[in-house]
Structures are given as C-alpha cells and as structure tokens.
Design a protein around this nucleic acid. Sequence first.
DNA 1: TTGCTCCTCACGTCACGTGAGGTGGC
DNA 2: TTGCTCCTCACGTCACGTGAGGTGGC
Lengths: 245, 245
Amino acid sequence: MAGESWKIGELARRTGLSVRTLHHYDQIKLLRPSARTASGHRIYSSSDLARLQQIVSLRQVGFSLQQIKRCLKDPDFGAAEALRLQLDRVRQQIREQQKLRARLEALANTMKSKKKISNEDLIQIIQDTIMHEKYFTPEQSEQIKKRARQVGQQRIEQSQKDWQTLMSEVQTEMDKGTPPTDPRVLALAKRWHALVEEFTAGDPGIRDSLKTMYQTESVIHGMQIEPMRRMMSYIAKAREVPGRP
Amino acid sequence: MAGESWKIGELARRTGLSVRTLHHYDQIKLLRPSARTASGHRIYSSSDLARLQQIVSLRQVGFSLQQIKRCLKDPDFGAAEALRLQLDRVRQQIREQQKLRARLEALANTMKSKKKISNEDLIQIIQDTIMHEKYFTPEQSEQIKKRARQVGQQRIEQSQKDWQTLMSEVQTEMDKGTPPTDPRVLALAKRWHALVEEFTAGDPGIRDSLKTMYQTESVIHGMQIEPMRRMMSYIAKAREVPGRP
DNA sequence: TTGCTCCTCACGTCACGTGAGGTGGC
DNA sequence: TTGCTCCTCACGTCACGTGAGGTGGC
C-alpha cells in the first residue's frame, strides 16, 4: 500500500487519453484528482486510476459521461437496463448505416460506368438513386441491375434515345388532336409497351413499382412528369380499342 | 410557369423539415428564400424548392451542410471523390458499431445467466468483457462460451471456489517457505494445472492467450494479479522437479 | 537559463431544438 | 378579437480540440 501517484501527463500516457480529456473530467466532476501539489498540479492516486478505468470501460459500451457519472454514484442507476437500450440503439444505428452504405455503393456502381460527371449531373443521379429506393425493393433493384448488365450499356443508351423519340412523337399526335383510337397511336402504344417491357423484363412487380413511381412523383430525373402522365393516359386509351368489335 | 410559391411553414410541411431547419439554412446562406413579403415573411419559389430538394438529397448521402454549400456553388468541388470518402467512412463506422454490438451482446449473454447484479458488479463484468476481447479471438471466445454451456453454471462456480481455495493453500506454502520441490507443492501444482486445463479444454491457443493475459495485465477481475504471478512462478518450479533424477 | 509539463480561461465544433418576446394576416 | 403563423435573437447540446497567456520543477 505504498500508494503510487501520477501527474496528469503520466496518467494520460498510461491510459491513452489526452490531458485535455482529464481536465474535462475534472471540470464536470466525473474524476477529480484526490490531491493537488502546493502549486496546483493535479495528483492522481491509484484509486483515481481505478475509477478512471471504470469510466473508460463504461465509455466503451457507449455510455455518455452523464450516464457514467450517475452509474458510478447512484446504486439505483439502472445500468443493466441502460445496456439493453444501448444495444437497441446500436442495432438501429447499424441498420441505418447499412442503408446509407447500400445507397453509396449503388452510387459508386452507377458512377463507375460513366466517365467525368459534373456535380449537377451527380446530384441528379443521387436524387434518382434515392427516389429509386422508395419504389423498388432491394431484390427488384438487383434484378434491374442484373438486366442492365445483360443488355449492356449501349442498348440502355439506345433505349433512352428511343424514349425521347417516342415521347416527342406521342406529343405530336396529341398536339394534332389525333384520336387515341387512330392506328398510328396504336403503333406508338405498341412501341411504348415494348420499351416498358424491355425495362421491366416482364416482371410484373417491377412494372407495378414503376407505375406507382410515375403516378406519385412530380419530377423524375429532373423532368416534370405531368406531361408524361398525360401521354400515359392517351396511350392507355389506344390499347383499349383493339378489344372492341 | 405561373411560379408557385410557399411560405416557410408550407415548405416545411411539404419537405418534412422543421421551420427551424429552414431558418438555419437561411442563416448559413445555404438556402435563402428568393423573396420576402413587406412584413419580412420568407417566400420560397419553385426553384428554391428544387434547390432544397438537392440539399436534402446530399444530406441523405451523408454530406455536411458545408460540403453541400460548396458542392452547389463550386463546379470544381470533387463530389465524386467526396462520395468515395464518405463510403469509406461509413464502412469504417459500421465495423466499429459492429464491434460495439458484439460487445453489448456478449454482455447481455453474460448477464442473462445472473439474477440481479449491482452496478459495481456490472462494471466489473464490463471491464472483464473488454479485457477478454483483447486477448481472445472471437473464435476462442465462442469456444470458451460453448465449453461453459457444456460444463454448466454450477461447475463453473465450483471451479471458481476451487481456485480460491487452491490459491490460498499455495500462498500458505509460500509464506511457510516450503521449497517448490516439496511433494506437497507438486500436489498443488497438479491441481493448478488441472484447473487451467479444465478452463482451456486443452486448447493450446486459449492456453497461450490466457497466459499472455496474466502476464500483461496488472488487474484482472478487480484483483491485483502480481501475487498470482509470483504463485505461478513458484508452481512452475514445482513442475520442473519430477524431471530430475 | 532552457525545455518540458503544468495551470486556467474561453472560443469553436455540428445541425439544429427550444424557448422568449413580439408582430402579421385571415 | 382570437388563433395560427411568422419574425429575430440567443442559449443549449456533447465531448472534448485548440490556442492564449502564464507559471512550476528538474
């Protein structure tokens, strides 16, 4: 029981904490050195060290300094209960971080097929990715990605151009007042459905999700989709016709 | 292009943010409403909304508000690079959170076999758990846990009592100055090794880790282990004897 | 005397939450 | 006139990091 003792710097080195941290613990009365020299230097005893090690351990299970204070002072502090809550919180946080990781990985994936992207385009991609998550399950996303790999980057770009072309043709007919029962509109409808089928690969789940997305959102990929919705209902009427006598 | 516009409360409701958050974004010049009423009320235009949606998206990939500001202002801001760094950070954080989760789960496991535990005892268990992690691999921990389940709680408690008894007997012989070559000490050594073997289940890896732990730490399970180290070397000498002619 | 350690303020961090105290528009 | 919304300060959060300016002990 010689009673070893340390100055603040020595204790910091022994424990891997910073001197500032020990100052802070002193300040908030979490760990006050049991003595001071005449000139005011802090002197920590071996029981101070033992307490500090308890503090560090409790920090390492995620307790706040306030919780640690109460835990060390108040025998009625429900430490076991606090640990259970802590576990719940950590599990929840891991789930959230994993979502974020999946999002960032999806972005990294999307980006690696492109060359230089402007910040503006990148933000657009981010917005699309996040919106995508809202309507497609991870399995559906996986399915779509797999399909994209199968058909290849070139075909995807071609499809996008085909969409542009098709939409402007549809808009033209609508502007001209062509009735949806016109055979030209039916032809456009067939191309429309073919492109949708190509994207969904015939998967009805993906088809439904896509439809919900277009019915819910007002802007997709930076485009107002209200005009597109009007095209959709025009095209839908075209399909009804062949069924009639 | 009628140019819709919203007051701050309306915009908050539309985006799910708080009014205070929008005040904050205004304050740090991240999103300033493009107009004010005569009485000073903020008026947000649809392009303000578009910018806000970009901000929200960038927040959802983990960017800080400062990063978002730069990303929206400076075309040279390396957003793609920042995303990669963000992914690294998130992966690292997940690894750390998973360690913490494993620790808390180990604690929950240890605790569920006990009834009411005082905070003091619980802190002791936490310290032991954390120390344990330093010397045993997850596989070894799993091994030890499995073994504990096999032998049962009762046998474990009995072993701990046996340890206490044995150590006090060894201490007695040391105090009496009994030479380690004495047959009584050899008998003690045999009991000692039997208890170690029982804990390690004959696994040499676990045996080594245990030895390293006792050689490195100065306090284990709240006990000074310096006296125990002295016992160990006394006991070790006892073993050397039978080998001699 | 020179280094190194120690001391006490005290501001800064990050993204807002939460009042306080008062005004504006239906 | 009563509610509801809006306004501008301004402190608080959490666990310290980071100086600033000065003193103490070998």
